[in-house]
Write a protein that binds this DNA or RNA. Sequence first.
DNA 1: ACGGATAATACA
DNA 2: TTGTATTAT
Length: 811
Amino acid sequence: MPVARRETSDGRVIAHVDLDCFYVQVEQRKQPNLRGLPTAVIQYNSYKGGALIAVSYEARRCGVKRSMRGDEAKEACPQIQLVQVPVARGKADLNSYRTAGSEVVSVLSQKGRCERASIDEVYLDLTHAAEAMLMETPPESMQDFEEEVLNSHVLGLEIQDGSDAKEEVRKWLCRSDASYQDKLLACGALIVSDLRMQVLKATEFTCSAGIAHNKMLAKLASAMNKPAQQTVVPNSSVEGLLASLPIKKMKHLGGKLGSSVQCDLGVNTVGDLLQFSEEKLQQLYGINTGTWLWNIARGISGEEVEGRLLPKSHGSGKTFPGPQALKTIDSVQHWLNELCEELNERLHSDLDQNKRMAQTLTLHARVYKTGDSDSHKKFPSKSCPLRYGTRKIQEDALILFQAGLRDFLGFCSKAHGSENNNWGVTSLSVSASKIVSIPSGTNSIIKYFGGQFPSSSTSNQSLDVVIDGAAPSSPSGSESCSGLVPYESQLEYQYPEDTGVKLSEACLYQQDPLRNFSNKADDLTEESSFMSPLGSGDRMTRDEPRRELPAKDHRLVSNSSSLKAVGKKKRAGKQLQCAITVPEPEISYLPFQSQDINQLFQALVQTGLRPVLCGMLVRKLIWHAINVLDFIDATMNGCCGAFVRDLNDMPLLTSTLKMVGIMSQAICVVLFDPVSAMGNSSIINFFSNYRNTQSSLEQKNVKNVEGVKISSSLGSESADDGYSTPNRVGQPVEHPREEIDTNKSGCSAGNMPQGRQAWSYNVDDIDPSIIDELPPEIQQEFRTWLRPHKRPNVVKRGSSITHYFLPDKTR
DNA sequence: ACGGATAATACA
DNA sequence: TTGTATTAT
């Protein structure tokens, strides 16, 4: 349910744009001879002519409906042209539609904030553009209008019989006695019609649109006149519209909730909800949903148009209906491999094109169980940190599946090989989520404060980058993972602590038997090596087997302007030495070295910004640092990354949450002063101040956490992956049990060394106006930290460890 | 258990 | 937090 916000800030101009039968249009653009013909897009030709997923308006007029089968469609409309969805790796490949959708977005995102709501829908916030037009060139001053805008539909505008609709629309658009809001909508209509023409020109796609004062109404309106038309919803027509709008037509009410509402309250239309008090609705449907219902009955919807042009997750899935159900681990592995390959491809596109990386891998499956009583039990979804590289994703996905299967089957079933007659997989999907931008944001901040950091000038030298060829990758291929591996044995597998270093080194450089067979492009990224700043000895000098580095692979070539390649050997002793290979040039981060975080904070304070803002900046920097390390880890499987992985690479462990705080600390220490992480350092001291505030309960938690850590070398290790071997270099962190934060410790100034100001802060106490002090290009990012979300339905459970470094997104 | 593949979001 | 459920196209 959307956030139920009460404010009726409805001077806004919101548009919803919807591509008409989008997949059909994409195919028709590919094959122009299909234009104007009744056409449908189908996938999987095999069964009953395939499933219809898009139907042209010509075909709809013939009575063809989506969710018909290809055969039925032929029956209803013999002339229909059926086009198949492209197939890749044995499954539907929707990429052409995704890119076509992006083309449209790039046109539509020009006149205001744009939210890509789905592959073929966007919301636009055109408030500013409309206001500007009203100021500069109001419709009433215009001589004539484009034909297109005169085709708009204006809800509630009476068109007399025999009168000219376009003339009526023209008059409505330039009514000088209209309300301010209506005038804004008129401007919106002009803008949207112009945008739609631009879309047509640039992409050859037609779309329909709704223009209203909020998202909900705009969405309703865009569906009212299709295809290739637009509809305006003036305030005056809202009441009438909702009064006759069936509940189920409303977004979010098309399913069970809508049915309940109809049932419980005995209502049919949205307007019928007007008679119920907000309290009543809340009492029935919860605080958020109740308020939301109360609002929509009045045409109120405070949802913001999110400025988001890209998807928040990527997924690849396939169903195996009926007889096609997968009955063996091997077949599951085969399909997982295909799905992961596609996912990997898309992740790499996203990385290349958008500089984003996903952090979580999730596996979903539908599995039936024959015979057993609880055969309706759902197969559990499982997730783990996402490591980049096809094979890693494939391995992890299989492990996740096996873990899920183990849960699903319970302990009853013995693990016998790969043959199992008890179950069948009817659908598989892998998805990648928690996508973050890689640290160009840090860069932008640093640039903004460029040169203002005292003594932080070690700059590039502080991060020495080694460009190196490949090191061996996992020998665990398909074969070592086949068969049902008992989950417990994976979990318990561990390396002896004291031999950690040697062992990992040995593993790291062992010859990979599969290496010569690797020929996939992505292997380049997963096989790159990464040197630890903490590792003993200089591994770079070892004459390990090395793959030639193709110069053309830009992923392995760093941009020397921001990252210095120091060759194979240079190790400057005590300075931070990170060997980093970046997937793209341009990536630079932390071009300074801070002796401790507080110094950074102080440096920021000296720039004149308010301390609370500086605290946010510090956090943001560290937050990006975390991303960097994840990135390094994912790309390199390096030793720095191993730090993180020790703490983080625990697929399937639910106690990961507890680790986050400690992980953050480890990252911080490693990034800022890894050498000192081995001994005493100002950072350690800095953090040790927090130990005092630690409660005994928290101590207990930490203890558990450590226990978990020791026995949690799950996943890659079980796959005998030299890279993923926990690369325990000495003691990971000197004081791993230091508390990270408590809800209120917030960092009282008394705890601060030398009585400096605290750089921590409490989001609740922040005056949002501080953001205005920031440069515009950063403001937006910070705003999202402060944006209040919804009232929690339940009282927040007190978690003793808050995320010290992560921005508090929930207020 | 053929409305498939994919995405977002709310909630526990 | 992870995992589940709902909704939509």
